[in-house]
Design a protein around this nucleic acid. Structure first.
Lengths: 161, 161
DNA sequence: TATTATGTTATAATGATTCTAAAGAAGCTT
DNA sequence: AAGCTTCTTTAGAATCATTATAACATAATA
Protein backbone atom coordinates (compact mmCIF):
# COMPACT_ATOMS: atom_id res chain seq x y z
CA UNK A 1 0.00 0.00 0.00
CA UNK A 2 1.40 3.35 -0.96
CA UNK A 3 2.87 5.51 1.73
CA UNK A 4 0.57 8.23 2.93
CA UNK A 5 2.74 11.05 1.73
CA UNK A 6 2.53 9.81 -1.81
CA UNK A 7 -1.20 10.16 -1.73
CA UNK A 8 -1.37 13.56 -0.13
CA UNK A 9 -1.96 12.60 3.46
CA UNK A 10 0.05 13.60 6.46
CA UNK A 11 1.91 10.79 8.05
CA UNK A 12 0.91 10.29 11.67
CA UNK A 13 1.72 7.46 14.02
CA UNK A 14 -1.94 6.48 14.20
CA UNK A 15 -2.17 6.30 10.46
CA UNK A 16 1.00 4.29 10.28
CA UNK A 17 -0.39 1.81 12.75
CA UNK A 18 -3.60 1.50 10.80
CA UNK A 19 -1.69 1.06 7.60
CA UNK A 20 0.51 -1.53 9.18
CA UNK A 21 -2.43 -3.47 10.46
CA UNK A 22 -4.11 -3.35 7.11
CA UNK A 23 -1.08 -4.20 5.02
CA UNK A 24 -1.52 -7.71 3.74
CA UNK A 25 -4.44 -8.29 6.08
CA UNK A 26 -6.87 -10.75 4.56
CA UNK A 27 -9.46 -10.82 7.32
CA UNK A 28 -11.56 -7.98 5.93
CA UNK A 29 -11.81 -6.18 9.25
CA UNK A 30 -14.51 -3.75 10.27
CA UNK A 31 -13.63 -0.29 11.61
CA UNK A 32 -14.20 -1.65 15.07
CA UNK A 33 -11.82 -4.56 14.45
CA UNK A 34 -9.14 -2.17 13.31
CA UNK A 35 -9.73 0.05 16.29
CA UNK A 36 -9.54 -2.87 18.70
CA UNK A 37 -6.16 -3.82 17.38
CA UNK A 38 -4.57 -0.45 16.78
CA UNK A 39 -5.74 1.04 20.04
CA UNK A 40 -3.60 -1.48 21.84
CA UNK A 41 -0.64 0.47 20.61
CA UNK A 42 -2.32 3.87 20.93
CA UNK A 43 -4.65 3.59 23.88
CA UNK A 44 -5.90 7.14 23.62
CA UNK A 45 -6.85 6.78 20.04
CA UNK A 46 -10.35 7.48 18.91
CA UNK A 47 -12.58 5.35 16.76
CA UNK A 48 -13.19 8.47 14.70
CA UNK A 49 -9.58 8.42 13.61
CA UNK A 50 -10.07 4.97 12.21
CA UNK A 51 -13.13 6.08 10.31
CA UNK A 52 -11.40 9.23 9.10
CA UNK A 53 -8.40 7.35 7.90
CA UNK A 54 -10.40 4.66 6.21
CA UNK A 55 -12.47 7.23 4.42
CA UNK A 56 -9.38 9.12 3.29
CA UNK A 57 -7.84 5.93 2.02
CA UNK A 58 -11.03 4.89 0.33
CA UNK A 59 -11.27 8.17 -1.53
CA UNK A 60 -7.78 7.64 -2.82
CA UNK A 61 -8.52 4.09 -3.83
CA UNK A 62 -6.19 2.58 -1.26
CA UNK A 63 -8.78 0.41 0.43
CA UNK A 64 -12.14 -0.80 -0.63
CA UNK A 65 -15.28 -0.85 1.39
CA UNK A 66 -17.21 -4.09 1.25
CA UNK A 67 -20.96 -4.13 1.68
CA UNK A 68 -21.25 -7.90 1.73
CA UNK A 69 -21.74 -8.10 5.50
CA UNK A 70 -25.19 -6.77 6.35
CA UNK A 71 -24.13 -5.83 9.86
CA UNK A 72 -21.26 -3.52 9.14
CA UNK A 73 -18.85 -2.33 6.54
CA UNK A 74 -15.73 -4.35 6.08
CA UNK A 75 -12.51 -3.07 4.62
CA UNK A 76 -10.13 -4.65 2.18
CA UNK A 77 -6.60 -3.37 1.55
CA UNK A 78 -6.46 -5.42 -1.61
CA UNK A 79 -7.79 -3.04 -4.20
CA UNK A 80 -7.08 -5.23 -7.17
CA UNK A 81 -10.01 -6.93 -8.85
CA UNK A 82 -11.20 -9.94 -6.92
CA UNK A 83 -14.27 -11.39 -5.31
CA UNK A 84 -15.35 -12.74 -1.92
CA UNK A 85 -16.95 -15.63 -0.10
CA UNK A 86 -18.70 -14.84 3.16
CA UNK A 87 -19.52 -17.49 5.70
CA UNK A 88 -23.21 -17.24 6.51
CA UNK A 89 -22.44 -18.80 9.86
CA UNK A 90 -19.78 -16.57 11.32
CA UNK A 91 -19.24 -13.77 8.84
CA UNK A 92 -15.71 -14.71 7.96
CA UNK A 93 -14.77 -13.41 4.51
CA UNK A 94 -12.14 -14.81 2.20
CA UNK A 95 -10.83 -13.63 -1.13
CA UNK A 96 -11.52 -15.26 -4.45
CA UNK A 97 -8.88 -14.36 -6.96
CA UNK A 98 -10.56 -15.62 -10.03
CA UNK A 99 -11.50 -13.72 -13.12
CA UNK A 100 -15.01 -14.16 -14.42
CA UNK A 101 -16.14 -12.80 -17.72
CA UNK A 102 -19.41 -11.11 -16.83
CA UNK A 103 -21.16 -9.49 -19.70
CA UNK A 104 -24.58 -8.00 -19.39
CA UNK A 105 -26.53 -8.24 -22.61
CA UNK A 106 -27.95 -4.96 -23.83
CA UNK A 107 -31.55 -5.88 -23.09
CA UNK A 108 -30.67 -6.48 -19.47
CA UNK A 109 -28.52 -3.43 -19.15
CA UNK A 110 -31.40 -0.95 -19.10
CA UNK A 111 -29.29 1.93 -20.40
CA UNK A 112 -26.70 1.59 -17.69
CA UNK A 113 -23.08 1.99 -18.52
CA UNK A 114 -21.35 -0.67 -16.52
CA UNK A 115 -18.01 0.09 -14.97
CA UNK A 116 -17.29 -2.84 -12.74
CA UNK A 117 -18.56 -5.81 -10.86
CA UNK A 118 -18.10 -7.84 -7.75
CA UNK A 119 -19.22 -11.35 -6.99
CA UNK A 120 -20.42 -12.28 -3.53
CA UNK A 121 -20.37 -15.97 -2.77
CA UNK A 122 -22.26 -17.31 0.23
CA UNK A 123 -21.14 -20.41 1.97
CA UNK A 124 -20.11 -21.97 5.20
CA UNK A 125 -16.58 -22.27 6.40
CA UNK A 126 -14.98 -25.47 7.63
CA UNK A 127 -15.07 -24.36 11.23
CA UNK A 128 -18.78 -23.54 11.17
CA UNK A 129 -19.66 -26.80 9.48
CA UNK A 130 -17.98 -28.75 12.27
CA UNK A 131 -18.36 -26.83 15.44
CA UNK A 132 -21.97 -25.85 15.09
CA UNK A 133 -20.70 -22.32 15.06
CA UNK A 134 -19.27 -21.97 18.54
CA UNK A 135 -17.33 -18.87 17.70
CA UNK A 136 -20.24 -17.30 15.94
CA UNK A 137 -20.69 -13.66 16.90
CA UNK A 138 -23.77 -12.99 19.04
CA UNK A 139 -25.23 -10.80 16.37
CA UNK A 140 -25.22 -13.60 13.90
CA UNK A 141 -26.49 -16.16 16.38
CA UNK A 142 -29.56 -14.04 16.86
CA UNK A 143 -30.23 -13.39 13.26
CA UNK A 144 -28.23 -15.59 10.97
CA UNK A 145 -26.91 -14.06 7.86
CA UNK A 146 -29.03 -15.50 5.13
CA UNK A 147 -27.93 -15.56 1.59
CA UNK A 148 -30.13 -14.30 -1.16
CA UNK A 149 -32.95 -16.78 -1.40
CA UNK A 150 -33.02 -19.07 -4.37
CA UNK A 151 -29.57 -18.04 -5.41
CA UNK A 152 -28.47 -21.66 -5.45
CA UNK A 153 -25.14 -22.02 -7.11
CA UNK A 154 -26.30 -24.38 -9.76
CA UNK A 155 -29.70 -23.08 -10.58
CA UNK A 156 -30.07 -21.80 -14.05
CA UNK A 157 -31.30 -18.37 -15.00
CA UNK A 158 -32.31 -16.82 -18.24
CA UNK A 159 -29.24 -17.22 -20.29
CA UNK A 160 -25.55 -17.64 -20.12
CA UNK A 161 -23.22 -14.82 -20.97
CA UNK B 1 -45.72 -13.58 -3.91
CA UNK B 2 -47.54 -16.10 -1.81
CA UNK B 3 -50.41 -14.93 0.32
CA UNK B 4 -49.53 -14.40 3.94
CA UNK B 5 -51.78 -17.15 5.20
CA UNK B 6 -49.95 -19.71 3.14
CA UNK B 7 -46.76 -18.88 4.89
CA UNK B 8 -48.06 -18.80 8.42
CA UNK B 9 -48.60 -15.10 8.88
CA UNK B 10 -51.73 -13.32 9.91
CA UNK B 11 -53.27 -11.22 7.26
CA UNK B 12 -53.61 -7.61 8.29
CA UNK B 13 -54.46 -4.56 6.22
CA UNK B 14 -50.98 -3.16 6.79
CA UNK B 15 -49.37 -6.31 5.58
CA UNK B 16 -51.63 -6.43 2.60
CA UNK B 17 -50.63 -2.92 1.69
CA UNK B 18 -46.95 -3.73 2.02
CA UNK B 19 -47.41 -6.86 -0.03
CA UNK B 20 -49.28 -4.95 -2.65
CA UNK B 21 -46.61 -2.32 -2.86
CA UNK B 22 -43.91 -4.92 -3.14
CA UNK B 23 -45.66 -7.16 -5.64
CA UNK B 24 -43.88 -6.78 -8.93
CA UNK B 25 -41.97 -3.76 -7.64
CA UNK B 26 -38.62 -3.53 -9.35
CA UNK B 27 -37.29 -0.43 -7.63
CA UNK B 28 -35.64 -2.30 -4.76
CA UNK B 29 -37.08 -0.04 -2.09
CA UNK B 30 -35.67 0.55 1.36
CA UNK B 31 -37.81 0.12 4.47
CA UNK B 32 -38.23 3.87 4.52
CA UNK B 33 -39.39 3.91 0.89
CA UNK B 34 -41.99 1.29 1.65
CA UNK B 35 -43.10 3.17 4.72
CA UNK B 36 -43.40 6.42 2.79
CA UNK B 37 -45.71 4.82 0.31
CA UNK B 38 -47.77 2.55 2.49
CA UNK B 39 -48.29 5.11 5.24
CA UNK B 40 -50.23 7.19 2.75
CA UNK B 41 -52.93 4.60 2.97
CA UNK B 42 -52.40 3.92 6.68
CA UNK B 43 -51.33 7.19 8.21
CA UNK B 44 -51.05 5.79 11.72
CA UNK B 45 -48.79 3.04 10.66
CA UNK B 46 -45.40 2.61 12.25
CA UNK B 47 -42.09 2.12 10.56
CA UNK B 48 -41.60 -0.80 12.91
CA UNK B 49 -44.41 -2.63 11.19
CA UNK B 50 -42.58 -2.34 7.92
CA UNK B 51 -39.43 -3.73 9.45
CA UNK B 52 -41.34 -6.49 11.23
CA UNK B 53 -43.12 -7.51 8.10
CA UNK B 54 -40.00 -7.42 5.98
CA UNK B 55 -38.17 -9.55 8.49
CA UNK B 56 -41.01 -12.05 8.64
CA UNK B 57 -41.10 -12.25 4.88
CA UNK B 58 -37.36 -12.56 4.67
CA UNK B 59 -37.31 -15.47 7.08
CA UNK B 60 -39.83 -17.23 4.93
CA UNK B 61 -37.88 -16.51 1.79
CA UNK B 62 -40.52 -14.20 0.34
CA UNK B 63 -38.26 -11.20 -0.08
CA UNK B 64 -34.55 -10.83 -0.18
CA UNK B 65 -32.47 -8.25 1.54
CA UNK B 66 -29.87 -6.59 -0.63
CA UNK B 67 -26.66 -5.28 0.86
CA UNK B 68 -25.45 -3.65 -2.33
CA UNK B 69 -26.34 -0.13 -1.22
CA UNK B 70 -23.90 0.96 1.49
CA UNK B 71 -26.38 3.40 2.99
CA UNK B 72 -29.27 1.12 3.72
CA UNK B 73 -30.78 -2.25 3.12
CA UNK B 74 -32.89 -2.60 0.05
CA UNK B 75 -35.57 -5.20 -0.47
CA UNK B 76 -36.40 -7.27 -3.48
CA UNK B 77 -39.65 -9.22 -3.86
CA UNK B 78 -38.09 -11.21 -6.66
CA UNK B 79 -36.57 -14.13 -4.84
CA UNK B 80 -35.54 -16.04 -7.89
CA UNK B 81 -31.88 -16.13 -8.79
CA UNK B 82 -30.76 -12.91 -10.43
CA UNK B 83 -28.22 -10.15 -10.09
CA UNK B 84 -28.16 -6.37 -9.88
CA UNK B 85 -26.67 -3.22 -11.29
CA UNK B 86 -26.48 -0.22 -8.99
CA UNK B 87 -26.01 3.29 -10.27
CA UNK B 88 -23.07 4.81 -8.45
CA UNK B 89 -24.57 8.21 -9.12
CA UNK B 90 -28.06 7.94 -7.69
CA UNK B 91 -28.35 4.50 -6.15
CA UNK B 92 -30.96 3.21 -8.56
CA UNK B 93 -30.86 -0.58 -8.77
CA UNK B 94 -32.02 -2.70 -11.67
CA UNK B 95 -32.26 -6.44 -12.10
CA UNK B 96 -30.03 -8.54 -14.27
CA UNK B 97 -31.71 -11.77 -15.19
CA UNK B 98 -28.76 -13.56 -16.60
CA UNK B 99 -27.27 -16.80 -15.51
CA UNK B 100 -23.53 -16.90 -14.96
CA UNK B 101 -21.65 -20.07 -14.34
CA UNK B 102 -19.46 -19.15 -11.38
CA UNK B 103 -17.24 -21.90 -10.16
CA UNK B 104 -14.66 -21.36 -7.50
CA UNK B 105 -11.67 -23.62 -7.95
CA UNK B 106 -10.74 -25.65 -4.90
CA UNK B 107 -7.57 -23.72 -4.17
CA UNK B 108 -9.56 -20.50 -3.95
CA UNK B 109 -12.37 -22.01 -1.95
CA UNK B 110 -10.42 -22.22 1.31
CA UNK B 111 -12.55 -25.05 2.70
CA UNK B 112 -15.75 -23.16 2.25
CA UNK B 113 -18.81 -24.97 1.03
CA UNK B 114 -20.43 -22.58 -1.36
CA UNK B 115 -24.19 -22.35 -1.45
CA UNK B 116 -24.92 -19.38 -3.63
CA UNK B 117 -23.74 -16.22 -5.22
CA UNK B 118 -24.79 -12.78 -6.28
CA UNK B 119 -23.17 -10.44 -8.74
CA UNK B 120 -23.14 -6.71 -8.11
CA UNK B 121 -22.54 -4.58 -11.14
CA UNK B 122 -21.60 -0.93 -10.74
CA UNK B 123 -22.47 1.59 -13.36
CA UNK B 124 -24.18 4.79 -14.14
CA UNK B 125 -27.72 5.10 -15.36
CA UNK B 126 -28.78 7.06 -18.41
CA UNK B 127 -30.30 9.81 -16.31
CA UNK B 128 -27.17 10.37 -14.26
CA UNK B 129 -24.95 10.39 -17.29
CA UNK B 130 -26.99 13.18 -18.82
CA UNK B 131 -28.32 15.30 -16.06
CA UNK B 132 -25.18 15.57 -14.03
CA UNK B 133 -27.14 13.78 -11.37
CA UNK B 134 -29.72 16.39 -10.47
CA UNK B 135 -31.93 13.94 -8.72
CA UNK B 136 -29.10 12.42 -6.80
CA UNK B 137 -29.97 11.87 -3.14
CA UNK B 138 -28.18 14.25 -0.76
CA UNK B 139 -26.46 11.36 0.90
CA UNK B 140 -24.84 10.31 -2.30
CA UNK B 141 -23.99 13.82 -3.36
CA UNK B 142 -21.93 14.19 -0.23
CA UNK B 143 -20.22 10.89 -0.45
CA UNK B 144 -20.62 9.27 -3.81
CA UNK B 145 -21.10 5.59 -3.90
CA UNK B 146 -17.82 4.35 -5.21
CA UNK B 147 -17.47 1.01 -6.76
CA UNK B 148 -14.80 -1.35 -5.63
CA UNK B 149 -11.58 0.18 -6.88
CA UNK B 150 -9.87 -1.49 -9.73
CA UNK B 151 -12.78 -3.74 -10.36
CA UNK B 152 -12.88 -2.65 -14.00
CA UNK B 153 -15.16 -4.82 -16.02
CA UNK B 154 -12.55 -5.91 -18.45
CA UNK B 155 -9.52 -6.27 -16.31
CA UNK B 156 -8.21 -9.74 -16.04
CA UNK B 157 -7.58 -11.61 -12.85
CA UNK B 158 -5.85 -14.82 -12.06
CA UNK B 159 -7.73 -17.27 -14.14
CA UNK B 160 -10.98 -17.85 -15.83
CA UNK B 161 -13.50 -20.26 -14.43
C1' DT C 1 -68.43 -14.40 20.26
C1' DA C 2 -64.63 -15.71 23.64
C1' DT C 3 -60.05 -17.03 23.56
C1' DT C 4 -55.57 -16.78 22.35
C1' DA C 5 -51.83 -15.99 19.76
C1' DT C 6 -50.05 -12.46 16.81
C1' DG C 7 -49.62 -8.01 15.05
C1' DT C 8 -49.51 -2.95 15.61
C1' DT C 9 -48.15 1.12 17.67
C1' DA C 10 -45.46 4.77 19.91
C1' DT C 11 -41.52 5.17 21.92
C1' DA C 12 -37.15 4.09 23.74
C1' DA C 13 -32.86 1.78 22.85
C1' DT C 14 -29.03 0.26 20.11
C1' DG C 15 -25.15 0.21 17.07
C1' DA C 16 -22.65 1.82 13.33
C1' DT C 17 -21.09 5.82 11.52
C1' DT C 18 -20.45 10.87 11.09
C1' DC C 19 -19.98 15.49 12.89
C1' DT C 20 -18.12 19.18 15.93
C1' DA C 21 -15.01 22.02 18.15
C1' DA C 22 -10.93 22.38 20.59
C1' DA C 23 -6.27 20.94 21.15
C1' DG C 24 -2.18 18.82 18.93
C1' DA C 25 1.17 17.67 15.53
C1' DA C 26 3.09 17.50 10.47
C1' DG C 27 5.22 19.60 7.06
C1' DC C 28 6.73 23.58 5.15
C1' DT C 29 9.27 28.15 5.28
C1' DT C 30 12.39 30.80 7.04
C1' DA D 1 14.87 25.11 15.09
C1' DA D 2 10.94 28.57 15.49
C1' DG D 3 6.85 29.99 13.49
C1' DC D 4 2.90 29.22 10.57
C1' DT D 5 -0.47 27.08 8.41
C1' DT D 6 -3.02 23.36 7.61
C1' DC D 7 -4.34 18.94 8.48
C1' DT D 8 -5.25 15.46 12.14
C1' DT D 9 -6.66 13.73 16.46
C1' DT D 10 -9.65 13.54 20.12
C1' DA D 11 -13.79 13.18 23.13
C1' DG D 12 -18.09 13.63 22.85
C1' DA D 13 -22.42 14.71 20.83
C1' DA D 14 -25.35 13.86 16.91
C1' DT D 15 -27.42 11.12 13.29
C1' DC D 16 -29.42 7.44 10.85
C1' DA D 17 -30.94 2.93 10.13
C1' DT D 18 -32.64 -0.63 12.57
C1' DT D 19 -34.35 -3.32 16.63
C1' DA D 20 -36.51 -3.87 21.15
C1' DT D 21 -40.26 -2.96 24.54
C1' DA D 22 -44.66 -2.99 26.38
C1' DA D 23 -49.39 -1.71 26.10
C1' DC D 24 -53.06 -2.10 23.19
C1' DA D 25 -55.68 -4.09 19.17
C1' DT D 26 -57.11 -7.55 16.08
C1' DA D 27 -57.06 -11.98 13.13
C1' DA D 28 -57.80 -16.71 13.35
C1' DT D 29 -60.22 -20.29 15.24
C1' DA D 30 -63.13 -23.08 18.13
Amino acid sequence: MKRYRDIGLKLTPQRLAILEYLEGNETHPSAEDIYAEVSKKFPTMSLATVYNTLEALRQRGEVQELTIDPYKKRFDPDTGPHHHIICTGCGRIVDVHVYYELNVPADERKDFEISGNHVEFYGSCARCRKSGGDDTPEQIKERPLLQAAGRKSNERETRQS
